[in-house]
Amino acid sequence: MLTVQNVTKRFGKFTALQDISLEFSHGVYGLLAPNGAGKTTLMKMLVTLLFPTSGQILYDGAEISSMGSKYREKLGYLPQDFGYYRNNSPRQYLHYLAALKGIDRKEAEKRTEELLDMVALSDVKDKKMKKFSGGMIQRVGIAQAMLNQPEILILDEPTAGLDPKERVRFRNLLAELSKDRIVILSTHIVSDIECIANQVIFIKDHEVYCNTDRDSVCTVLQNKVFLCTVPEEASDDFENSHFILSRREEAGQTHFRFICENQADVPPDAEISTPNMEDVFLYVYREE
């Protein structure tokens, strides 16, 4: 079990995370927060790139920074922005990282072939990466994170740049992997978390706002999300007086999806709708 205990991280006078406490066991953990909320800082601390200003991070009861390589050999990490060696092919790149991960040469070759096949890069495995698109680079990144079959997989914006088909493939893969390991992922794409996360963590104002299972997340908006159709000329007034989730124009009418916390304020013709995680995200971070 990976435990974050009262962790605070400051950069000079700026507090990036304040008194965070979390526990991770098997399953997929979705980390949701807008930019600058401290997601990446938390992830970097989990992979020992950053050190907490106070508090500690434990793995099976031991402090991760003192575990050193014993901890890092269990890690798979995909950073949000990661560099690569432009003149390397994906195969060379993965072989190098496999060597750093302590995987022996034969095993590395086998794993590299499997992973490149998994991320559909087998046919370009010997091409230089400088010619790759963003999505292809991202897939190489996903492959490297899985090289050592990690017990803890930490993914920062893993689906950025992937096309919808690749995203679905990747989600399915993560769901399969999460059976016997910890998977922590942060993303702006709420649907990714909605599909695969067992547990959802919201970080707001540099603190944990909510840490709950996927099914419970939406209860916060139960009976508060509505659908309504308004004539086009009245749409601006309606928008200004309600918390709008989405808006669609059609045949002189405007269809709104909105949140109304006070039942008395619900328009009489509005229909109740089932809230989803994106609604919750917009609701939680409405001021940001």
Binding site: T48, G68, R72, L75, F82, L97, G102, N148
Partner: peptide, 9 residues
């Protein structure tokens, strides 16, 4: 971020 989080660190 990749190389220093590997086993070799």
């Amino acid at each position: 971020a990749l190389t220093y989080t590997t086993r070799r660190g």
